[in-house]
Amino acid sequence: MLDTCPSMFSVVALAVMAIFQAVALLSKGRIETPPSFRSLWVFFLAITLAEWVSFSLALWLLALLSFCALREYLSLVDIRLEDRWGILVSYLSIPFMFYLIHIEWYGFFIIAIPVYAFLLVPFFVALGGRSKGIVFSVGVLDFGLFFFVFCVGHIGYLLFYSARITLLMIIAVTISGWIHKVLGNRSLGVKLPLQLASVFPLCISLASWAAIPIGHSAALAILIPVSVCLGRFTLKELEQDLGIRADRLQPGRGRTIEGLKSYLYTAPIVFHYLRWFLKWGDL
């Protein structure tokens, strides 16, 4: 079964999550679903859709996730009234970005945010006409675009190349992120070996199924936990400044960002590693 299609697995995962969600609903707040559940729903649903229904539908689902994350981020930062045009352009870059994945134009996809959006957004912020605080505004918008559009977009492009690898990455990152979270304040010397120990067997055993050479699979098994640690550490500090606290997550107050935390660093790293070494597309 596992050999025929990855979406079977994600359907199973969806079913498990649905049961868990139902239990959480019935318990009336005594059991709470972890914040990463929402993004996991989107990922598994996207994998299923990509395999069985259509890839573009899966892509627009990811675009919705990206929109939600960016919206939440922009609601949390201190923006000025004059930045409205800049924010509008930031939002418009999401459909643009995912359209580029849709038409498989890698060359433009990879520079759309770091070149064109980063040139256009400051221009539109400057159109607002107040110079006081403009540096902060441009920085705030560029950062949000990079993480919540560009990095999430990489998951979409990975899904375009291989649903199996995407599934492998999602599972590995989820496990690794979960271990990182559960161990809490322990030192990295405890966390990282445990993450490696859990991700390594998974990657090695699924290597042939996901069509990754065994050597690269081993490299991924090291890359994923390391990048998860990096990402979670960085995003934790950012969340603190944004006022997101794990104990008082609310819709619109960090639930989406908290859930996406582990994937933001890992997705581009895994994608570009595989693209380079497996020679996907023309380099």
């Binding site: 919206r71 939440e72 609601s75």
Partner: peptide, 20 residues
């Protein structure tokens, strides 16, 4: 809280931002 950023008085268009 939120509409003063999502659709303030002087703004020509609303923006998607959370409201509490």
């Amino acid at each position: 809280e939120g509409p003063e950023r999502a659709f303030p008085k002087s703004a020509p268009f609303p923006l998607p931002l959370w409201n509490h």
